[in-house]
Design a protein around this nucleic acid. Structure first.
Lengths: 106, 106
DNA sequence: ATATAATACATCGCGTTACGATGTATACCA
DNA sequence: TGGTATACATCGTAACGCGATGTATTATAT
């Protein structure tokens, strides 16, 4: 997948990965893998950005004797996904523009 | 539209704007406007990038006493659009992942 | 027992990119 | 005379993905 295209999907995809239940870094990467692969450095950058933007909240909890940071989606995070749905309509129009073949002249 | 999303569509949209007939800067912006708005500084950056990547070729011609640069799509440019079509299948899968609602438990 | 892989989080630096600001020059219209 | 549209171009800035690298614990294989 083209890297610029990927950029537009990453944030929203991470939010989708924690939408139904709180999750943590390593699990998010594994859950997203079938859809979009991303490195750890990329994910942690994104998580920090989304936290700063109040699209998710963080809670640290112990698991098997070591700490994990669990991420929880907020109202703003949900809204981010809804905004993406609005963008989607425009994207589909653009897709049709890009892929439409030249029509025959008569 | 989210700016990151736009980034993934701009190049391919510019190529689509010159696909059926050669065009020039100002006209490309106007033709793209219904789909994706972009500034002149952005467009000329993109045109230069696509030229460097051999996705289009340039020809200067006089029009009403002043010079215009006409852009023509190349085989590599066509291929770029075809690659986008392939990416589209992945994008649709991601869209479904992002927008699917949590199913009821029982 | 010991090495390797998996889990888990984090930072730094680099290259790519969109875009506002700005500049130059001509044509057209009020 | 001045404003608007046409037409192309460059510079600086900020955002972002990601490879490289680091730290630390747990599980698995040799």
């Amino acid at each position: 997948m083209d890297i610029q295209l990927k950029r537009g999907l990453l944030d929203v995809c991470v939010l989708a990965a924690i939408r139904n239940e709180d999750s943590y870094g390593y699990k998010i990467i594994k859950d997203m893998k079938p859809y979009l692969e991303l490195s750890e450095s990329t994910l942690y950058t994104i998580l920090k950005r989304l936290e700063t933007a109040n699209m998710l909240s963080v809670r640290t909890a112990e698991h098997d004797g070591r700490l994990r940071k669990y991420y929880h989606i907020t109202g703003d995070g949900i809204k981010r996904i809804e905004d993406f749905k609005d963008d989607w309509k425009e994207i589909e129009t653009i897709y049709r523009f890009v892929t439409k073949e030249e029509q025959e002249h008569a």
